[in-house]
Design a protein around this nucleic acid. Structure first.
Length: 1032
RNA sequence: GCCGAAGUGGCGGAAUUGGUAGACGCGCUGGAUUCAAAAUCCAGUUCUUGCAAGAGAGUGCGGGUUCGAUUCCCGCCUUCGGUACCA
């Protein structure tokens, strides 16, 4: 009987669905295991074969864990809010809700097709009000909490207010950005507006001015990736930085815990390093520099307090608040000009243009607190407002940028660190002996850092400080398709939370998704929605990461309308045991989720400190593009030239005819027969009129307008064109053949003689097999090439070239999993995806290779069936047969555990090939293989499981255990090397002693041959491994 | 520039702790079956050399450690990914 995946897979899909095989309960006597895939955004173009790589891997692992006796949670849902749907709406006019729903149903169909074991009863969609109700609820929790630095956790803002009321700002132990202080008494006397303003510097969700990329021409705000080279990607319009009051999340409060938490989780080291760099912890000191002629002191942050004696100038960020105040009248004009210049530069330009050093002197001076010397204060774009204090003490001797700056503007440089003891150290290394540095001269850098900080602290002009590169997350988007904020603004513009009972704040219907004329979010157009008796609603919406930062918790309890997740559910499932997804989320999604989870932990809502125990990154699958070569004008010329030569030798190319002012060049002309040929596209020839003809007539030439298309159309039989020339020669007026319109000539890759005469074009890989193009399908697929003519190779085939590129629609190299499943079956597709290579590596897709997996499945099936039906026997397996199967069980087990799915597939192939050779159809061994292969090829396994007479589903069978006793051998094959080079192999008894092996090996003929006439210096015997004989 | 990952046959890749390099598959070559094709089956397939037996070379390049290195160390080259005036 033939293996028919389509029938088998259809049958069991239905069975699983009918019996709700994948439905999971929040309780079990089995231990729990939670396998999660990264939340997909349902894009309009659907899945290609690169997407399911991670889903198949997680599915295999889920099924494996289930067979191993775990209660496995394996859910799926959609990150359904997002920009693409909104852009699509603006362009095409389809409501985002509609396109998102369509995309989701397409995704669902594609996912189902692959036979993934998701518990769909737990599906969540971030755009569903029942879901975003809780996203809004979480936002209100963030709004209602602050970060207590004394207890190192989030606490209610009411606690903070109590502290203010009893002891003023001094008493509060909190992570905040408030500058200034107040007493309890002062607090009580402040207005509500003032209180709100102060509290916003403490809340975990707060409003502050942030800069957005405003594009006046497009009337919209752009994301960073919508800007290329400082201008908008669409249209190339200028982009300016526009200040806007926006919601932020105080993620920086969690910086240290996010950093420390990395120690406890099993993430790839590369990913941890990325997160560490993003958090960017640096230890140093802050110090105050007195401004000359002002009461104020400027605060700077430095990681090198030891070099303070070398600080010869100071640099402020152009956006620093005090630039205006300290600028001297003489420098005013120059500074203003400089600030204008900086304002004209996008953030991207400022960052990418490192070589170009710019800056301006403010005319003001600061006093170096330790040297007492006056140092000039400059403004320069290399200092960033958002990092540290937006001001630096510049030490040109020990910082590369400061050094470049000082050299460029001729500022003082004082050497303060002698690195002569460390010849390999560069400027950045914190080593060396201090020189020219007052009381720390002679100290090692390490000690000097300590001594200077002590001195700064003693004098009250600075202190030790830890700084993080991490910035607070911007939480506002001026978009429509996102979660509305559950916030009103009262008459004083104080944000007031919507009552919990009134959640969710549903996203109102809208039919025009462009921003308002002044750049406010689209919801600002809905006056009736925006203006309520409680106040004005917030019209911004939340960003994509709002819904995706907690979705894994919702899967535990997706339909709960009393809580975002119940305590029982989260106590049962705890956290995600295995998370599989792309490395592109290394810092964004993974850092936000971790932050939110820690916040939930602080509130006692989850029992774990980290959401994801183990994470595996999946690599990308690249596309294998195919190319065809379309002949161009040059090709047509070459063809014509060659063909004309065979007719008459006297045609010349690019011939000048006529004389003096009347002379002009034609493509081909024959003096003898007085024929001139112009070779142009039909499009161009249509523009010729009678005057054109007359030009030739006057000179006594017959004019032939010849279309390039015509040349291509008659490439294989040129006689119509020859005939045409003959007719023209007889005085007949000839016209280009319009019937050849849309004719294109394609040259097989191995027939190309001149690369410049052809144009390389992408061709749909789905109509190319083994690089040979199906020309019929080609003409059907492209209306513009429907009249194609080919130059085929010797085998009569059109051969394409290929290249590996990103899989994308525009490159015609997208392979749809549906087509693969349709042709080969889901089981085959799943195994081939895994067979491609290690899960974490990027690799190219090549459909050709799938036939190997297909024939494996046929062979596997043939172990159970012959043409008459089932051929299983109840015979006792031989020792060899047992060995093959148990070796397979052992290897598969080990490889699944280390996520090496590609070698698992190889292992199945090897085992099948070996059993096939032995003609083994014995139930006792095959029944083990059926369960073993179930995670990989679930449909086939289920079919065979039932054919073997079992009840229920193979999904809940017991996973086979290997028996080591079947694997032990009486002899072991050893390689025998002479001087490390393998010269022979030989079997030795498994329990042979080192001495016996040595003696036996030395006696071998081949060893004798190699050692003859030489001294044996050493014999190395590694039991069960190898023998190496060293001769000399 | 910095950080990270990776360089192995024609191709995807294998080699668990330093111990038979190239498993498994694609492709290719030859053969069987067939009226023929598809499918299937058998054999071969790192390179050089040789009729063969064999010999030599070989995991990006150059060194080193070792009886032995794809694996460990040092230096370099290339590709891919990330990131950026981070004081």
């Amino acid at each position: 009987m033939e293996y028919q995946p389509r029938a088998i897979e259809k049958k069991w899909k239905k069975y699983w669905e009918d019996h709700e095989i994948y439905k999971v309960e929040n309780q079990s006597d089995r231990p729990k295991y939670y396998v999660l895939d990264m939340f997909p955004y349902p894009s309009g173009s659907g899945l290609h074969v690169g997407h399911p790589l991670g889903y198949i891997a997680s599915d295999i692992f889920s099924r494996y864990k289930r067979l191993k006796g775990f209660n496995v949670l394996h859910p799926m849902g959609y990150d359904a809010f997002g920009l693409p749907a909104e852009q699509y709406a603006v362009q095409i006019g389809v409501h985002p809700a509609v396109s998102t729903r369509d995309n989701i149903s397409r995704y669902r169909h594609q996912l189902d097709n692959i036979g993934l074991s998701f518990d769909w009863s737990r599906e969540v969609q971030t755009c569903d009000p029942n879901y975003y109700k809780w996203t809004q609820w979480i936002f209100l929790q963030l709004f209602g909490h602050y970060y207590c630095t004394a207890c190192d956790k989030a606490k209610p803002v009411s606690d903070l207010i109590a502290q203010f009321e009893s002891g003023g700002s001094e008493k509060a132990t909190a992570n905040h950005t408030f500058e200034g202080s107040f007493t309890a008494e002062e607090w009580k006397n402040k207005s509500n507006k003032e209180k709100d303003s102060i509290l916003s510097h403490y809340r975990l969700a707060y409003r502050q001015v942030q800069y957005v990329n405003w594009c006046e021409a497009l009337g919209t705000i752009l994301a960073n990736d919508e800007i290329k080279d400082g201008v908008s990607e669409r249209g190339g319009f200028p982009v300016e930085r526009k200040p806007m009051v926006q919601w932020s999340l105080r993620t920086t409060a969690y910086a240290e815990r996010l950093l420390q938490g990395l120690k406890d989780i099993d993430f790839p080291e590369a990913l941890k390093i990325q997160q560490r760099n993003w958090i960017g912890k640096s230890e140093g000191a802050k110090a105050y520099f007195q401004l000359k002629g002002f009461d104020e002191k400027i605060e700077v942050f430095t990681t090198r307090p030891d070099t303070i004696f070398g600080a010869t100038f100071m640099v402020l960020a152009p956006e620093h608040d005090w630039v205006d105040m300290i600028t001297s009248p003489e420098q005013r004009k120059k500074i203003d000009e400089y600030l204008d210049y900086v304002g004209s530069r996008s953030e991207l330009q400022r960052m990418s243009d490192v070589k170009h050093i710019t800056g301006e002197f403010t005319g003001a001076y600061a006093i170096n607190p330790l040297t007492g010397k006056e140092i000039p204060i400059w403004v320069a774009e290399y200092v960033l407002k958002d990092y540290g204090t937006g001001a630096i003490m510049a030490v040109p001797s020990d910082d590369e940028r400061d050094s470049n700056f000082a050299k460029h503007f001729g500022l003082d440089i004082i050497s303060v660190v002698d690195k002569s003891d460390y010849p390999d150290a560069d400027m950045k290394d914190k080593v060396g002996k201090m020189i020219n540095s007052g009381f720390v001269t002679g100290m090692e850098v390490k000690d000097a850092i300590k001594a200077i900080i002590e001195k700064l602290e003693a004098d009250g002009i600075g202190e030790k400080q830890i700084n993080y590169r991490l910035r607070d997350a911007n939480f506002s988007r001026q978009r429509y398709w996102g979660e509305p904020f559950p916030i009103f603004f009262d008459k004083d513009d104080i944000p007031v939370p919507v009552d919990i009972e009134d959640l969710p704040v549903e996203l109102p219907a809208l039919d025009d998704f462009k921003p308002t004329s002044d750049g406010k979010a689209p919801l600002g157009k809905l006056e009736s929605w925006m203006n309520t008796p409680q106040g004005k609603r917030e019209i911004d919406t939340m960003p994509g990461f709002a819904g995706s930062s907690w979705y894994f918790l919702r899967y535990m309890d997706p339909n709960n309308d009393k809580a975002f997740v119940s305590k029982e559910a989260v106590d049962y499932w705890q956290d995600v045991d295995l998370y599989i997804g792309g490395a592109e989320h290394a810092v964004g999604h993974l850092l936000y989720s971790r932050t939110w989870h820690k916040f939930f932990y602080d509130l006692g809502l989850v029992p774990t400190k980290e959401p994801f125990k183990k994470l595996v990154n999946q690599g990308m699958i690249g596309g294998r593009s195919n190319f065809v070569y379309r002949a161009n004008e040059k090709f047509a010329e070459q063809v014509l030239e060659e063909k004309l030569r065979s007719v008459s030798g006297s045609f010349e190319k690019n011939k000048i005819i006529g004389q003096g002012e009347n002379a002009f060049e034609v493509d081909f002309a024959c003096d003898e027969c007085k024929v001139a040929i112009e070779l142009k596209t039909l499009y161009n020839l249509e523009r010729y009129d009678d005057k054109h003809h007359d030009q030739f007539t006057k000179l006594g030439y017959t004019f032939i307008p010849l279309a390039i298309e015509e040349v291509f159309a008659h490439y294989h039989d040129f006689s119509p064109i020859i005939e045409k020339i003959r007719k023209a020669n007889l005085g007949e007026k000839v016209q280009p053949n319009v019937n050849t319109k849309e004719t294109a000539l394609f040259v097989s890759q191995d027939m190309i003689k001149d690369r410049s005469a052809v144009t390389k074009l992408h061709v749909d890989v789905n109509i190319v097999h083994h690089d040979i193009m199906d020309t019929d399908a080609f003409e059907k697929s492209r209306t513009d090439f429907r009249r194609a003519v080919y130059v085929l190779n010797d085998q009569g085939q059109y051969k394409c070239s290929h290249a590996f590129e990103k899989m994308s629609k525009s490159k015609f190299n997208v392979v749809n999993p549906d087509i693969m499943v349709d042709q080969y079956g889901a089981d085959c597709f799943r195994m081939y995806e895994m067979f491609l290579g290690p899960i974490e590596q990027s690799k190219p897709w090549n459909t050709e290779g799938i036939s190997g997996v297909q024939s494996f499945l046929k062979k596997f099936y043939a172990l159970f069936y012959d043409e008459n039906g089932l051929r299983i026997t109840d015979d006792e397996p031989t020792k060899d047969e047992y060995k093959i199967v148990h070796q397979c069980i052992k290897n598969i087990n080990k490889d699944i555990e280390r996520f090496s799915f590609n070698t698992c597939v190889s292992e199945f192939m090897k085992c099948t090939n070996e059993l096939r050779k032995l003609k083994c159809h014995k139930k006792a061994v095959l029944k083990e293989l059926v369960v073993l292969i179930a995670p990989f090829a679930p449909h086939l396994a289920e079919e065979l499981w039932h054919e073997l007479g079992n009840e229920g589903t193979v999904n809940l069978a017991a996973y086979p255990q290997h028996d080591e006793s079947y694997l032990t051998e009486s002899t072991i094959t050893y390689p025998i090397s002479i001087n490390g080079k393998k010269r022979a192999i030989h079997d030795f008894a498994v329990d042979a002693s080192k001495e016996d092996i040595e003696k036996e090996a030395m006696a071998l003929e081949i060893v004798q041959k190699w050692t003859e006439g030489k001294t044996v210096r050493k014999v190395i015997v590694v039991p069960k491994r190898m023998v190496n004989i060293v001769v000399g």
